[in-house]
């Protein structure tokens, strides 16, 4: 069974014919070739699929595409600002918060959700906000450094 799915994706209105049983993750990756959002586990176990829906973090692998009809969805591809890395992406790059990069889109989106609601989080708050995102490379230390750096940059802007 398929219906028209209408939503805003990274700032642009989209209308696509999408089967009802399509996960948001598959709609993004297979339907729209937006492969920045990752499939890392069997469902809800790793956070690599984190996107934003109306500014809130959301696991795309545990969300039906039609479940976010009419909402504003943001993926890592939408983080770019005028062709340049945004402050979180740049902070991850400059502080080595990213090694293999697989967890990075999910980490950045979860951090973005945090900074929108709390622009000056302390390290423990960042830790709690990203506790649902697994990383296998960094041991998390430089990810925390990166989010702190991005928050500092934004605060001094």
């Amino acid at each position: 069974m398929k219906s028209i799915l209408s939503l805003t994706l990274n700032g642009r209105l989209r209308e696509d014919v999408v089967p009802h049983n399509t996960l948001l993750l598959d709609y993004l990756r297979d339907g729209l070739q937006l492969t920045g959002t990752k499939r890392g586990c069997d469902g809800g176990e790793c956070g690599a699929c984190t996107v934003l829906v109306d500014g809130q973090p959301r696991l795309a692998c545990s969300t039906l595409a039609h479940g976010v009809a009419g909402r504003h969805v943001e993926t890592i591809e939408g983080m770019r600002r005028s062709g340049r890395l945004d402050r979180l992406q740049r902070a991850f790059h400059e502080n080595l918060g990213t090694q293999c990069g697989f967890c990075t889109p999910g980490m950045v989106m979860a951090a973005e959700a945090l900074l929108r609601s709390n622009p000056t989080p302390d390290r423990e708050t960042i830790r709690s906000a990203l506790a649902g995102n697994l990383c296998r490379c960094t041991g998390y230390v430089k990810i925390l450094d990166a989010v702190e750096a991005a928050a500092r940059e934004e605060a001094s802007a």
Binding site: H20, G43, G44, E45, L59, C61, S62, L64, H66, G67
Partner: peptide
């Protein structure tokens, strides 16, 4: 019924739930 989906959808992906209709 599905609301947040964080329990139902992973279970569906594993083939634990078969249903002809989901009420969002």
């Amino acid at each position: 019924f599905v609301a947040g989906g964080t329990d139902l959808l992973p279970n569906m992906r594993r083939g634990l739930v078969r249903t002809p209709a989901v009420i969002e």
